[in-house]
Design a binder for these strands. Structure first.
Lengths: 180, 180
DNA sequence: CTGAATTTTCAGAATAAACTGAAAAACATG
DNA sequence: CATGTTTTTCAGTTTATTCTGAAAATTCAG
């Protein structure tokens, strides 16, 4: 069996510390974003874990309750950022995160479109519709403004579709178009 | 003086209702997004207001306290989405929103980069740095994953710069590049 | 079918975020 | 400088969100 030289031990400890730091910081960023701290931490943990993990491991690692771990991991599954996998000979459910950053980006683009852009479009279209036949100067100003907003959000929606439709090496395509 | 025909009155009432609906719905969207409901409502109100407004008008229109109106309008100014303007012969402060959607988009891109992308980059770079010389298989897997994340976020940062640097008609440029 | 293992739910507790209202500070006017 | 006006601050309250922990439901093996 391999001998653990002092440097091995040092590296192992430093790795653990770096992983914890990453999970913790990613969680803090999560709340800056619109998602809960715990959900971001679970995502971070699964992204840097080589093996799929169980709910109990998440509870243990992050010091959180079963209900919390359960709810958040299921929400990550609903987002499409985490999937449930079967480990042979095990009854428990195991979870693993999508690790490919381009896939993650596509998923986030798709979900944010659905959750943020589409509801806004609904509101704006209703306002544009209602105000389209009004005659007064004030009403026309209102119409103009909501129409411009609607046009922009509609454009953003198309961009999101375009991005989430791009295949694996999409960053190259996108980079070429935007930066080239 | 102009006579108010029944249709004028009807339109006036419908306009008021549409404006209120827009403000209320935009507020709800705001919380779906990462910003407070009130801040989004103030922004909506100022975007569809033809004249600049005072804190007292905001308080009255949205039925909120002075402290709340004050704090949120100042935060919008800090974002760069609203500016303070001087109205001749008035002592009170007046506020108006940027109405040009492309300007709004640039501002949001710039601010979100600063608030969401840059802190993430900081965390990731630290992790990449620390783990770059480690030897074990686990450590290298960690390094690889955070490096990929760092590369992507760094790319996103460049995209945000590009977008926020585009001049007025940028949507056309962007549309041509992305959709063309 | 039985019982142990596991997942799911959810009422109440804890925490975090937003808001109020009034007092203090800053400002303008004569 | 005295006074009335407007802005700013902030301690305390309310509201919204997240989390806990235990009970109920489900699943599976024998």
């Amino acid at each position: 069996m391999k001998v653990n030289l002092p440097t091995d031990e040092t590296e192992k400890a430093a790795l653990k510390q770096a992983r914890d730091e990453f999970v913790s910081q990613w969680g803090a960023l999560g709340s800056q974003w619109g998602i809960s701290r715990t959900m971001a931490q679970i995502h971070a943990l699964l992204m840097i874990s080589e093996q799929p993990m169980t709910t109990d491991e998440l509870m243990d690692e992050l010091q959180i309750s079963r209900g919390n771990a359960h709810g958040n991991v299921k929400e990550l599954v609903a987002w499409g950022l985490v999937r449930q996998v079967v480990v042979r000979g095990e009854r428990k459910e195991f979870f693993e995160a999508e690790k490919d950053v381009w896939e993650i980006a596509r998923t986030v683009a798709r979900e944010r479109k659905r959750r943020e852009i589409e509801p806004a479009l609904g509101v704006l279209r209703e306002c544009v519709e209602k105000s389209s036949t009004w005659k007064s100067a004030e009403a026309q100003a209102f119409h103009q403004q909501v129409r411009q907003l609607e046009e922009f959000v509609s454009f953003a929606s198309k961009v999101a579709d375009q991005v989430s439709g791009m295949k694996h090496g999409f960053a190259l395509q996108l980079a070429a178009k935007l930066l080239g």
